[in-house]
Amino acid sequence: MTKKKKGQEASVDMTPMIDCVFLLIIFFVVSTQIVTDVIPLEPPFAKNISIDPLVEKAIININENGVHVGGQACPTWEDLQTRMESRAKQFKIEDDGFSEMVLYIRGDTVSQWKFTQEVLAIANECSPQIYKTDFAAQMKPQR
C-alpha cells in the first residue's frame, strides 16, 4: 500500500478545459441571431433560389393563424397597410418616390395564394410604394 506523502496536494490543470469552454461560448455568442420577425412556419422547398442574408428586409409571415408583421398578427388588412407604410418610411426613398425596402413574404407551404396576392396588392398601394418583393423558400435538402 502506498501512502500519500504529507504536504503534497494533487491538482488538475484546468486551463485547457477553460480554453475549450471559452471557445464554445464565443462560437455561440457570435453565431446566435436573435430573431423577432420570424414566426415558425414551413415555406416550400425550391432549387433555384438566391441567398443574400445581408440585405435588410421587412418580413411578412402568412400561415393559417394570420398575417404577421414584426412577429405580431395583424387583425385587419388596413392595419397591415399602416404597418407596412411605417416600415417603408424607415428605408431610403428612391428618386421616383418608391421605397427601397425589400418585402420578404414567408408563406406557409399550404397558405392560400389569395393572401399573398392581397399582400402584393397592398404593397402596390402603400405610400411610399413598395415594389421589391421576395418569396421565401427553403433550400432543397441534400440527399
Binding site: A46, S50, I51, Q129
Partner: peptide, 15 residues
C-alpha cells in the same frame, strides 16, 4: 434550415 428567396419585383408602372 437556411432560407433563400425568389425575386418577385413588381413593375413600377403598374396601373
Amino acid at each position: 434550415t437556411p432560407e433563400g428567396h425568389l425575386d418577385i419585383w413588381q413593375p413600377k408602372d403598374s396601373g
